[in-house]
Simulated assay, not measured.
Amino acid sequence: MTALDLIGAQVLLPGQGLVDAPLSFADGWIVSEPAGRRVDLSGCMILPGIVDLHGDGFERHVAPRRGAMTDVAEGLVAAAGELALNGITTAVLAQFYSWEGGLRGPEFAEKVFTAIAAVRPRVIPDLIPQLRFETYMLDDYAALPDRLAAWGVPYVVFNDHLAHDRLAAGRKPPRLTGQALKAGRNPDAYFQTMLALEARGPEVPAALEALTARLGDVGIRMGSHDDRDPQTRAAWRARGVGIAEFPETREAAEAARAAGDAIVMGAPNVMRGGSHNGNVSALDLVASGLCDALASDYHYPSPRRAALSLAQTGVLGVEAAWDLVSAGPARVLGLSDRGTLAPGKRADLLVLERSSGRIVAVFAAGRVAHMSGDLAARFLTG
Protein backbone atom coordinates (compact mmCIF):
# COMPACT_ATOMS: atom_id res chain seq x y z
CA MET A 1 0.00 0.00 0.00
CA THR A 2 2.47 2.62 -1.18
CA ALA A 3 -0.04 4.80 -3.04
CA LEU A 4 -3.52 5.56 -1.68
CA ASP A 5 -6.23 8.16 -2.15
CA LEU A 6 -8.19 8.56 1.07
CA ILE A 7 -11.66 10.01 0.42
CA GLY A 8 -14.83 10.75 2.36
CA ALA A 9 -13.13 11.81 5.61
CA GLN A 10 -12.61 15.14 7.29
CA VAL A 11 -8.94 16.06 7.00
CA LEU A 12 -7.05 18.48 9.24
CA LEU A 13 -5.27 20.74 6.76
CA PRO A 14 -2.84 23.52 7.71
CA GLY A 15 -4.56 26.89 7.85
CA GLN A 16 -7.96 25.38 7.08
CA GLY A 17 -8.88 23.22 10.04
CA LEU A 18 -11.05 20.14 9.53
CA VAL A 19 -12.41 20.09 6.00
CA ASP A 20 -13.99 17.54 3.70
CA ALA A 21 -11.15 16.80 1.33
CA PRO A 22 -9.26 13.88 -0.19
CA LEU A 23 -5.76 13.04 0.98
CA SER A 24 -3.29 11.21 -1.25
CA PHE A 25 0.12 9.78 -0.57
CA ALA A 26 2.65 7.78 -2.56
CA ASP A 27 6.05 6.33 -1.73
CA GLY A 28 5.85 7.66 1.81
CA TRP A 29 5.00 11.29 0.97
CA ILE A 30 1.80 13.31 0.77
CA VAL A 31 1.03 14.38 -2.80
CA SER A 32 -1.32 16.94 -4.29
CA GLU A 33 -2.89 14.76 -6.99
CA PRO A 34 -4.60 11.34 -6.92
CA ALA A 35 -1.92 8.70 -6.68
CA GLY A 36 -3.39 5.23 -6.31
CA ARG A 37 -6.24 3.11 -5.03
CA ARG A 38 -9.22 4.93 -3.50
CA VAL A 39 -10.25 4.09 0.07
CA ASP A 40 -13.54 5.45 1.41
CA LEU A 41 -13.07 6.69 4.99
CA SER A 42 -16.52 8.20 5.50
CA GLY A 43 -17.22 8.73 9.18
CA CYS A 44 -13.56 9.33 10.00
CA MET A 45 -11.12 12.14 10.60
CA ILE A 46 -7.56 12.15 9.29
CA LEU A 47 -5.04 13.94 11.52
CA PRO A 48 -1.27 14.42 11.34
CA GLY A 49 0.75 11.75 13.09
CA ILE A 50 1.72 12.60 16.66
CA VAL A 51 5.30 13.73 17.32
CA ASP A 52 6.08 12.86 20.94
CA LEU A 53 8.89 15.04 22.27
CA HIS A 54 9.58 13.19 25.50
CA GLY A 55 8.41 9.82 26.79
CA ASP A 56 9.71 7.06 29.02
CA GLY A 57 6.72 4.72 28.78
CA PHE A 58 8.96 2.25 26.95
CA GLU A 59 10.42 1.28 30.34
CA ARG A 60 7.33 -0.88 30.95
CA HIS A 61 8.38 -3.05 28.03
CA VAL A 62 12.10 -3.34 28.66
CA ALA A 63 11.75 -3.86 32.43
CA PRO A 64 8.18 -4.95 33.18
CA ARG A 65 8.90 -5.80 36.83
CA ARG A 66 11.59 -4.87 39.29
CA GLY A 67 14.62 -7.02 38.60
CA ALA A 68 13.01 -8.58 35.52
CA MET A 69 14.84 -7.23 32.47
CA THR A 70 13.60 -8.48 29.14
CA ASP A 71 15.66 -8.38 25.97
CA VAL A 72 15.90 -4.62 25.52
CA ALA A 73 15.60 -4.73 21.73
CA GLU A 74 12.48 -6.89 21.85
CA GLY A 75 11.04 -4.65 24.54
CA LEU A 76 11.52 -1.65 22.25
CA VAL A 77 9.76 -3.47 19.41
CA ALA A 78 6.79 -3.97 21.75
CA ALA A 79 6.97 -0.31 22.75
CA ALA A 80 6.89 0.69 19.07
CA GLY A 81 3.64 -1.22 18.75
CA GLU A 82 2.16 0.71 21.66
CA LEU A 83 3.34 3.99 20.16
CA ALA A 84 1.69 3.17 16.85
CA LEU A 85 -1.70 2.21 18.26
CA ASN A 86 -1.73 5.56 20.08
CA GLY A 87 -1.07 7.50 16.88
CA ILE A 88 2.56 8.37 17.66
CA THR A 89 4.55 8.27 14.44
CA THR A 90 7.70 9.97 15.80
CA ALA A 91 8.78 9.20 19.35
CA VAL A 92 11.59 10.68 21.43
CA LEU A 93 12.62 7.95 23.88
CA ALA A 94 13.88 9.63 27.05
CA GLN A 95 16.58 7.62 28.81
CA PHE A 96 18.34 8.68 32.01
CA TYR A 97 22.10 8.77 32.49
CA SER A 98 22.27 9.16 36.22
CA TRP A 99 24.10 8.39 39.45
CA GLU A 100 20.77 6.88 40.59
CA GLY A 101 21.68 3.59 38.90
CA GLY A 102 19.39 0.75 37.86
CA LEU A 103 17.18 1.74 34.92
CA ARG A 104 18.65 5.23 35.21
CA GLY A 105 22.31 4.23 35.30
CA PRO A 106 24.93 4.67 32.56
CA GLU A 107 25.17 0.91 31.95
CA PHE A 108 21.47 0.64 31.22
CA ALA A 109 21.61 3.75 29.01
CA GLU A 110 24.25 2.00 26.91
CA LYS A 111 21.91 -0.98 26.45
CA VAL A 112 18.94 1.18 25.53
CA PHE A 113 20.74 3.34 22.97
CA THR A 114 22.41 0.31 21.39
CA ALA A 115 19.01 -1.37 21.15
CA ILE A 116 17.34 1.71 19.64
CA ALA A 117 19.95 1.78 16.88
CA ALA A 118 19.39 -1.92 16.24
CA VAL A 119 15.57 -1.86 16.07
CA ARG A 120 15.03 1.53 14.45
CA PRO A 121 15.26 0.18 10.88
CA ARG A 122 12.70 -2.56 11.56
CA VAL A 123 9.96 -0.68 13.40
CA ILE A 124 7.63 1.78 11.74
CA PRO A 125 7.35 4.72 14.15
CA ASP A 126 10.48 6.86 13.96
CA LEU A 127 12.42 6.39 17.22
CA ILE A 128 14.68 9.25 18.33
CA PRO A 129 16.91 8.72 21.39
CA GLN A 130 17.14 11.41 24.06
CA LEU A 131 19.67 11.34 26.91
CA ARG A 132 18.62 12.81 30.25
CA PHE A 133 21.93 13.74 31.83
CA GLU A 134 22.42 14.40 35.55
CA THR A 135 24.45 17.59 35.86
CA TYR A 136 26.42 16.48 38.94
CA MET A 137 28.06 13.54 37.13
CA LEU A 138 31.21 15.57 36.60
CA ASP A 139 33.45 12.60 35.93
CA ASP A 140 31.38 11.75 32.84
CA TYR A 141 31.55 15.17 31.16
CA ALA A 142 34.74 14.60 29.18
CA ALA A 143 33.57 11.44 27.43
CA LEU A 144 29.95 12.46 26.91
CA PRO A 145 30.18 14.02 23.40
CA ASP A 146 31.92 10.96 22.01
CA ARG A 147 29.40 8.65 23.66
CA LEU A 148 26.51 10.61 22.15
CA ALA A 149 28.09 10.35 18.72
CA ALA A 150 28.62 6.61 19.09
CA TRP A 151 25.03 6.08 20.23
CA GLY A 152 23.51 8.39 17.61
CA VAL A 153 21.85 10.58 20.25
CA PRO A 154 20.89 14.04 18.87
CA TYR A 155 19.08 15.43 21.93
CA VAL A 156 20.22 15.95 25.53
CA VAL A 157 18.17 17.21 28.46
CA PHE A 158 19.85 18.26 31.70
CA ASN A 159 18.45 17.11 35.06
CA ASP A 160 19.39 17.51 38.69
CA HIS A 161 17.70 15.10 41.09
CA LEU A 162 19.88 15.66 44.13
CA ALA A 163 18.04 16.78 47.27
CA HIS A 164 20.43 19.66 47.87
CA ASP A 165 18.88 21.16 51.02
CA ARG A 166 18.94 17.88 52.93
CA LEU A 167 22.34 16.79 51.63
CA ALA A 168 23.90 20.14 52.50
CA ALA A 169 22.71 19.53 56.05
CA GLY A 170 24.09 15.97 56.02
CA ARG A 171 20.58 14.49 56.16
CA LYS A 172 19.23 11.59 54.12
CA PRO A 173 16.64 12.46 51.47
CA PRO A 174 13.17 10.95 51.84
CA ARG A 175 12.65 7.46 50.38
CA LEU A 176 16.40 6.95 49.99
CA THR A 177 16.33 3.33 51.12
CA GLY A 178 13.63 2.33 48.66
CA GLN A 179 15.33 4.10 45.78
CA ALA A 180 18.67 2.49 46.58
CA LEU A 181 17.20 -1.01 46.77
CA LYS A 182 15.27 -0.47 43.53
CA ALA A 183 18.56 0.39 41.83
CA GLY A 184 20.30 -2.63 43.42
CA ARG A 185 22.48 -0.45 45.64
CA ASN A 186 23.38 -0.50 49.32
CA PRO A 187 21.45 2.37 50.98
CA ASP A 188 24.43 3.58 53.02
CA ALA A 189 26.74 3.56 50.01
CA TYR A 190 24.01 5.27 48.00
CA PHE A 191 23.86 8.07 50.57
CA GLN A 192 27.64 8.46 50.52
CA THR A 193 27.52 8.77 46.72
CA MET A 194 24.99 11.58 47.04
CA LEU A 195 27.10 13.39 49.62
CA ALA A 196 30.20 13.13 47.43
CA LEU A 197 28.31 14.55 44.46
CA GLU A 198 26.87 17.36 46.55
CA ALA A 199 30.34 18.31 47.77
CA ARG A 200 31.43 18.99 44.19
CA GLY A 201 28.60 21.43 43.54
CA PRO A 202 30.86 24.49 43.10
CA GLU A 203 32.49 22.80 40.10
CA VAL A 204 29.25 22.26 38.20
CA PRO A 205 28.52 25.70 36.63
CA ALA A 206 31.88 26.07 34.90
CA ALA A 207 31.85 22.43 33.79
CA LEU A 208 28.39 22.92 32.30
CA GLU A 209 29.57 25.98 30.38
CA ALA A 210 32.28 23.93 28.73
CA LEU A 211 30.10 20.88 28.10
CA THR A 212 27.18 22.74 26.54
CA ALA A 213 29.60 24.64 24.30
CA ARG A 214 31.06 21.35 23.06
CA LEU A 215 27.61 19.84 22.47
CA GLY A 216 26.39 22.96 20.71
CA ASP A 217 29.39 22.90 18.40
CA VAL A 218 28.41 19.43 17.12
CA GLY A 219 24.72 20.28 16.71
CA ILE A 220 23.25 18.52 19.73
CA ARG A 221 19.78 19.81 20.61
CA MET A 222 19.61 20.70 24.32
CA GLY A 223 16.89 21.18 26.90
CA SER A 224 16.58 21.78 30.63
CA HIS A 225 14.18 19.93 32.89
CA ASP A 226 11.97 21.39 35.64
CA ASP A 227 13.07 25.03 35.49
CA ARG A 228 11.88 26.57 38.74
CA ASP A 229 12.21 30.30 38.06
CA PRO A 230 13.19 32.86 35.39
CA GLN A 231 16.76 32.98 36.65
CA THR A 232 17.24 29.25 36.11
CA ARG A 233 15.82 29.47 32.59
CA ALA A 234 18.06 32.45 31.80
CA ALA A 235 21.13 30.55 32.97
CA TRP A 236 20.33 27.63 30.70
CA ARG A 237 19.58 29.92 27.78
CA ALA A 238 22.97 31.59 28.20
CA ARG A 239 24.52 28.14 27.72
CA GLY A 240 22.64 27.61 24.45
CA VAL A 241 19.99 25.36 26.02
CA GLY A 242 16.85 26.56 24.25
CA ILE A 243 14.19 24.01 25.24
CA ALA A 244 12.37 24.23 28.58
CA GLU A 245 10.91 20.83 29.46
CA PHE A 246 8.16 20.89 32.08
CA PRO A 247 8.89 24.26 33.74
CA GLU A 248 7.61 24.09 37.30
CA THR A 249 6.23 27.64 37.56
CA ARG A 250 4.34 30.06 35.38
CA GLU A 251 7.12 32.61 35.86
CA ALA A 252 9.68 30.23 34.36
CA ALA A 253 7.39 29.54 31.40
CA GLU A 254 6.77 33.26 30.85
CA ALA A 255 10.52 33.88 30.86
CA ALA A 256 10.99 31.14 28.29
CA ARG A 257 8.28 32.56 26.06
CA ALA A 258 9.62 36.12 26.30
CA ALA A 259 13.05 34.92 25.15
CA GLY A 260 11.73 32.70 22.35
CA ASP A 261 12.63 29.41 24.04
CA ALA A 262 10.52 26.32 23.31
CA ILE A 263 8.22 25.13 26.10
CA VAL A 264 7.28 21.46 26.48
CA MET A 265 4.62 20.33 28.94
CA GLY A 266 3.19 16.95 29.88
CA ALA A 267 -0.03 15.76 28.24
CA PRO A 268 -0.96 13.75 31.38
CA ASN A 269 -0.84 17.05 33.31
CA VAL A 270 -3.44 18.47 30.88
CA MET A 271 -5.70 15.46 31.36
CA ARG A 272 -5.48 15.71 35.16
CA GLY A 273 -6.07 19.45 35.06
CA GLY A 274 -2.94 20.00 37.12
CA SER A 275 0.44 18.67 38.17
CA HIS A 276 0.59 15.60 40.41
CA ASN A 277 3.30 17.26 42.53
CA GLY A 278 1.95 20.78 42.85
CA ASN A 279 3.74 22.45 39.94
CA VAL A 280 2.06 24.82 37.51
CA SER A 281 -0.89 23.44 35.56
CA ALA A 282 -0.09 22.56 31.96
CA LEU A 283 -3.73 23.31 31.12
CA ASP A 284 -3.32 26.87 32.39
CA LEU A 285 -0.11 27.34 30.40
CA VAL A 286 -1.73 26.01 27.23
CA ALA A 287 -4.70 28.34 27.64
CA SER A 288 -2.28 31.25 28.10
CA GLY A 289 -0.23 30.45 25.00
CA LEU A 290 2.75 29.32 27.06
CA CYS A 291 3.25 25.89 25.53
CA ASP A 292 4.73 24.78 22.21
CA ALA A 293 4.35 21.02 22.57
CA LEU A 294 2.66 18.39 24.71
CA ALA A 295 4.61 15.21 25.41
CA SER A 296 3.49 11.80 26.59
CA ASP A 297 5.89 11.92 29.56
CA TYR A 298 5.00 8.47 30.92
CA HIS A 299 1.62 7.71 29.25
CA TYR A 300 1.45 7.21 25.48
CA PRO A 301 -2.35 7.67 25.07
CA SER A 302 -2.23 11.13 26.66
CA PRO A 303 -1.08 13.32 23.70
CA ARG A 304 -4.07 12.28 21.58
CA ARG A 305 -6.48 12.53 24.50
CA ALA A 306 -5.15 15.91 25.61
CA ALA A 307 -5.29 17.49 22.14
CA LEU A 308 -8.84 16.24 21.53
CA SER A 309 -9.94 17.39 24.99
CA LEU A 310 -8.52 20.88 24.42
CA ALA A 311 -10.52 21.13 21.19
CA GLN A 312 -13.72 19.59 22.55
CA THR A 313 -13.78 21.86 25.62
CA GLY A 314 -13.05 24.96 23.56
CA VAL A 315 -9.74 25.81 25.21
CA LEU A 316 -8.23 25.89 21.70
CA GLY A 317 -9.49 25.40 18.18
CA VAL A 318 -8.93 21.95 16.74
CA GLU A 319 -5.97 22.98 14.58
CA ALA A 320 -4.20 24.82 17.41
CA ALA A 321 -4.87 21.94 19.81
CA TRP A 322 -3.54 19.28 17.44
CA ASP A 323 -0.57 21.51 16.60
CA LEU A 324 0.65 20.90 20.17
CA VAL A 325 1.16 17.20 19.42
CA SER A 326 2.19 17.37 15.75
CA ALA A 327 3.52 20.49 14.04
CA GLY A 328 4.60 22.12 17.32
CA PRO A 329 6.91 19.35 18.52
CA ALA A 330 8.16 18.81 14.96
CA ARG A 331 9.29 22.47 14.94
CA VAL A 332 11.00 22.08 18.31
CA LEU A 333 12.93 19.09 16.96
CA GLY A 334 13.76 20.85 13.69
CA LEU A 335 11.89 18.18 11.70
CA SER A 336 10.54 20.21 8.80
CA ASP A 337 9.42 17.12 6.89
CA ARG A 338 6.49 16.22 9.18
CA GLY A 339 3.79 17.57 11.47
CA THR A 340 1.17 18.67 8.93
CA LEU A 341 -0.81 17.05 6.14
CA ALA A 342 0.60 19.10 3.30
CA PRO A 343 2.03 17.99 -0.06
CA GLY A 344 5.73 17.27 0.26
CA LYS A 345 5.49 16.20 3.91
CA ARG A 346 6.00 12.65 5.16
CA ALA A 347 2.82 10.57 5.07
CA ASP A 348 2.56 10.44 8.85
CA LEU A 349 -1.12 10.32 9.74
CA LEU A 350 -3.75 8.71 11.89
CA VAL A 351 -7.36 7.88 11.09
CA LEU A 352 -9.84 8.50 13.88
CA GLU A 353 -13.35 7.08 13.89
CA ARG A 354 -15.61 10.05 14.68
CA SER A 355 -18.36 8.08 16.41
CA SER A 356 -16.07 6.38 18.91
CA GLY A 357 -12.94 8.54 18.96
CA ARG A 358 -10.85 5.39 18.41
CA ILE A 359 -7.70 5.35 16.34
CA VAL A 360 -8.38 2.80 13.63
CA ALA A 361 -5.37 3.26 11.35
CA VAL A 362 -1.93 4.82 11.56
CA PHE A 363 0.61 5.36 8.79
CA ALA A 364 4.20 6.47 9.29
CA ALA A 365 6.13 7.48 6.16
CA GLY A 366 3.31 5.83 4.21
CA ARG A 367 3.73 2.45 5.89
CA VAL A 368 1.01 0.80 7.93
CA ALA A 369 1.93 1.15 11.61
CA HIS A 370 -1.45 0.14 13.03
CA MET A 371 -4.84 -0.91 11.71
CA SER A 372 -7.80 -2.44 13.51
CA GLY A 373 -11.52 -3.09 13.50
CA ASP A 374 -14.00 -3.04 10.68
CA LEU A 375 -12.26 -0.11 9.03
CA ALA A 376 -9.31 -2.30 8.13
CA ALA A 377 -11.54 -4.05 5.60
CA ARG A 378 -11.91 -0.79 3.68
CA PHE A 379 -8.16 -0.69 3.10
CA LEU A 380 -7.98 -4.38 2.23
CA THR A 381 -10.92 -4.49 -0.19
CA GLY A 382 -10.85 -0.99 -1.62
Rank of each mutant, 00 (worst) to 15 (best):
T2Y: 01
A9K: 05
A9T: 06
G17I: 06
L18M: 10
P34Y: 13
P34I: 09
V39H: 02
L41N: 09
P48T: 10
F58K: 01
E59P: 08
R60H: 12
V62A: 09
A63L: 13
R66K: 07
G67Q: 11
A73R: 08
G81C: 07
N86K: 07
T90Q: 01
L93I: 04
L103V: 08
G105D: 00
P106W: 01
A109P: 01
E110Y: 07
F113M: 05
A115P: 06
I116H: 03
V119K: 02
P125N: 11
P125V: 08
L127I: 15
I128A: 01
P129E: 14
Q130V: 13
L131D: 02
F133V: 02
T135P: 14
Y141C: 07
L148D: 03
P154C: 05
F158V: 00
F158D: 00
G170W: 14
R175E: 09
L176C: 04
A180C: 12
A183H: 00
R185Q: 11
T193H: 07
A196T: 10
A199W: 00
R200M: 07
R200H: 10
R200D: 11
P202K: 12
E203A: 12
E203I: 05
T212G: 08
R214D: 04
G216R: 08
G216A: 14
D217W: 04
R228T: 14
D229W: 09
T232I: 11
A234M: 12
R239G: 00
V241P: 00
A244V: 04
A252R: 03
E254H: 08
A256Y: 02
A259M: 11
A262E: 06
M265Q: 13
G266N: 11
N269S: 08
N269V: 09
V270K: 01
V270D: 03
G278S: 06
S281L: 05
V286D: 14
S288V: 07
G289H: 06
G289T: 04
D292N: 12
H299W: 13
P301D: 07
S309E: 06
S309V: 08
L310P: 04
V315D: 10
V315I: 15
E319V: 05
E319R: 03
E319S: 06
E319A: 12
A320F: 05
D323Y: 03
V325K: 00
V325F: 01
G328A: 13
G334L: 15
R346F: 04
A347P: 10
D348F: 01
D348T: 04
L349R: 09
R354H: 02
S355P: 03
G357H: 12
G357P: 13
I359A: 14
A361M: 10
A361L: 06
H370V: 10
H370T: 12
D374E: 15
D374Q: 09
A376W: 02
A376H: 02
R378N: 14
F379D: 13
F379K: 10
T381V: 15
